[in-house]
Structures are given as structure tokens and as C-alpha cells.
Design a protein around this nucleic acid. Structure first.
Lengths: 233, 233
DNA sequence: GACTGTGAAGCCATTCACAGCT
DNA sequence: AGCTGTGAATGGCTTCACAGTC
């Protein structure tokens, strides 16, 4: 229970639990059972209890979990109370959507710099953030402590963008492009190309041999970039 | 090897292989070894060979795989040559980005209807697609054969949107909202809330107990909706 | 009686290691 | 000699089932 390795899947679900707890909290619930919390997060109750057990004993037998207390603990575990600075490369479509959206800032993810590679928006202020030309990348990144990089550009330049982020010292990269990104092992990379999800959905529809899935993690070294059909995300 | 169950993860990787094969094809390669293809997709070579072996024997020992032939086979397996009709609910941020983006149409995913719940764009034509008011949902869905539904609205109404899609007969749902969606078991649902990926990245950064992950699948029944911090995607 | 915490069992997925083909 | 295809081994994750607690 102490320095046991935590399954990736457990960490993923912890966020789900936290969000459902927020909903319960708002609805005025004070305590919740594993059964209820599991139902709300589409998880097996035993799974949930095991997930929590990796980090300690938070519940009361015969009663359940105290909502607020459990929220606080998950917050600590996931480091949700921390705040992170993000930079964005690419203002086409998804990038522009992120720039406007900004709801993730309520979760502690602050967009503090945006770079346009087309030059279309360079210099403009969009939702109180000045858009920089990609030429200013090094200067801007040096003058701001950036934790996370978001890549939202066309596949051709995805790896360049990732390399630039790594050079600038980010610790994690969220990549919306359809090209897989290679980075040193100590940099966390998540690929979030939704067209893969579409492929998975339709595969499951056609063969009802229902068996689908999701992302993976990244290693290192440098092959040709993937890009089917050059998706400009 | 024949009617063995295919691991979800294998299906996910198949898309990756296919895309890298496209890249190789464009680069003029005729054959590729499992080692090379594996490197390009950040996968273990044995993994790749096993993945392919679920569906047959496509390679030549001592040589490797013929790029075009393998592409054709994966196309058949995943049903990539099929074409799918999608409808979109929600034109805020991500929804609007999808409407403009449209690159996924090259992959066989055609956006044939878009519904605005705010009424802001209703009646407008955006990139040669007429935006409908949500009131027209039933009529429009009846008059077009829609396979897939994309949800890109605020958390509060996510489940309603999903229910509407299910009633209209879609077979799969891609959900960008931060609220989990419940649907009958025979409807394929993929949740694609990227803020969860951010949480996973930052968790891995803080505890270097590096162990992260991804999505999950959906069961059924109806609890309270999750929505931390009401993310209007 | 209700519900948590958890060892043990079972299931799924990845990796190894090598036989088999060209 | 080189590379695929695959049984066997390993590792990881999920689920069961129940002892323990309130």
C-alpha cells in the first residue's frame, strides 16, 4: 500500500472520481458510498476501492466516504491545487478554440503564451492574450516559466514544435496533431488526435467483436513522422 | 489466430501502423520490417508482429512487409475505406473548430449536419454546411442517415445531447464535453476531454512514479452527470 | 446491515525467445 | 543471415469474495 506502483489506469480514474465528487458536493451530498461513486464514473465499485487503497484508507466501513475529505485527498494526490503555465503553438482550428475556450484555467492550467506559425494573428490580442509570432518563441519562453506545451499545428511541423518546447524546458506536452511526437523519456507526452478515436468507434461498430481503446505513451529516438492524410489540426 | 478476441489496444495501434505506412508509402518505400514500423509508431517490434498475427500472416520471413499490401489489409480490417456520416451538436469553441477543420473528411468522416444550441449561428452557412437550430434536430436527423454523433457542448446538456443522438439512431458518439455520457451498450462512446490528459501529464511530472493513462469504455444506467468546474467545451 | 479494505484469482496485454521460412 | 510468426513467460489491471469495522 505504501510505495506500491500506481497503475496508470488508476491515476486516470482518480480525475474522474474527483469530478464526480465536485458534482456531489455541489448537490449537497456529504457522504458517498463506493457503489454510488463508481456508478457515477462508470467504474466497478471494487475497482474504485482498490484505486483509493493505493493511497491509504479514506472511508468509514458501514458508511462510505466523506465527500469533502476525499476531494481534498485526491487533490493532494493528483496535485490539482497546483497551477501550471502553458504555451500554445498553432492557432488554426483547435488552437484557436483553446485560445477562446480557456475554461481549463479554472482547473489550474493557465495559457500564458500563444504562438502563431502563419503570422495571421501575430501581434493581435485574443481574449486578453497577445499572440506572438513564432520568431519570438525563444525570447518569450525564456521570459516566462512554462511548464506545459500544447501543439495544435499541422503534422509537418509537429516534431519541430515538440523539439522547441523541449529545448525551452517544458516538462509535458499535449499534442493534438495527428503526428506522433518523440521526446526524451523525462518529458511527459500525450497524443490527443481524435480521429483515432473515430477509427476505434467505427471499428467496434462494424465488427461487433467489441474491443476498443485509447492512447499510449512515448519512448524516444527519431523515425519518420507519422501523418496520414496530413491532418491540419 | 482465427476467431480469437482482438485486444482493444491492438485495434488502437492498427490505426497508428496504417498512418505510418501512409508516410512510408509517400516516401517511396516498398517494404518495411517490423523493427522499422515499430520504431515509427513507438511500439515494441514483437508487439507489432503479434498485433498483425491476430489477423493473418502478411509478411515475408527474412524480408518484411510489403507496404501497400499491408495498408490494404489494415484498411479492410479497420473498415477504413468505408464512409461515415457525422452530426455535430454545439458550435462553441471545439465544435466550431471541427466545423472549420473538416480534414477528417479525407478519412471518410463526413460532417453532414451541425446543430447550434445557442441559436447564434442557426441558418448560417459555415464552410458549405448549413447550421441548424437544435429545434430542427429530429427532422434533420430523420432526413439524413447519420452514423456518428459528436458532442461539443457545455456539460449541463451533454447527456441530453447523447440521448437525442441515441434516439436518432446513431451507432457511435464522440464526446468532447467533460461530462461522461451514458448510452446503451450497443452504442460506442468515446470521451475525449483533454483536461483529463493534462491532469495525467502533471501527475506524472510531480510524482516521477511515472505511470499514466487514458480513456475507458462506457457501461449503462443513469447517475448524476459528472462535471467538475462546468467546462464549456 | 451496510459498506470498506484487501488477498487471491482471473483476465488481458506485453515481451521474450526461438523455431521456421526465404 | 535476416526477419516473421508464435507459444510460453511475465507483468499489469480488474474483479471476486470475504474478513473486518462501524
Amino acid at each position: 500500500m505504501n510505495t506500491t506502483k500506481i497503475p496508470k489506469a488508476t491515476v486516470f480514474r482518480l480525475t474522474l472520481y474527483y469530478r464526480y465528487l465536485q458534482t456531489l458536493c455541489r448537490a449537497g451530498c456529504h457522504t458517498v458510498s463506493s457503489a454510488e461513486l463508481a456508478k457515477g464514473t462508470r467504474v466497478n465499485p471494487a475497482q474504485l476501492r482498490k484505486d483509493l487503497s493505493y493511497f491509504g484508507k479514506f472511508g468509514v466501513r458501514g458508511v462510505g466516504y466523506e465527500v469533502k475529505k476525499l476531494m481534498r485527498r485526491i487533490q493532494e494526490i493528483l496535485g490539482l491545487s497546483k497551477s501550471w503555465n502553458m504555451a500554445l503553438i498553432g492557432l488554426d482550428h483547435i488552437g484557436y478554440a483553446m485560445l477562446q475556450h480557456r475554461q481549463f484555467e479554472k482547473r489550474g492550467y493557465n495559457l500564458v503564451a500563444a504562438f502563431d506559425i502563419t503570422g495571421r494573428y501575430a501581434g493581435e490580442r485574443i481574449h486578453s492574450l497577445t499572440v506572438h509570432s513564432i520568431d519570438e518563441f525563444d525570447t518569450v519562453m525564456q521570459n516566462n516559466p512554462i511548464d506545459l506545451g500544447v501543439i495544435a499545428i499541422d503534422s509537418e511541423h509537429t516534431q519541430q514544435a515538440a523539439d522547441a518546447f523541449v529545448r525551452a524546458g517544458v516538462k509535458g506536452i499535449l499534442n493534438f496533431s495527428s503526428t506522433l511526437v518523440t521526446a526524451p523519456k523525462d518529458i511527459q507526452v500525450k497524443d490527443a488526435d481524435f480521429t483515432i478515436l473515430l477509427d476505434n468507434i467505427t471499428y467496434a461498430i462494424t465488427r461487433d467483436t467489441n474491443k476498443l481503446e485509447v492512447p499510449s505513451d512515448i519512448h524516444s529516438d527519431a523515425p519518420l513522422p507519422i501523418h496520414g492524410i496530413a491532418l491540419s489540426v
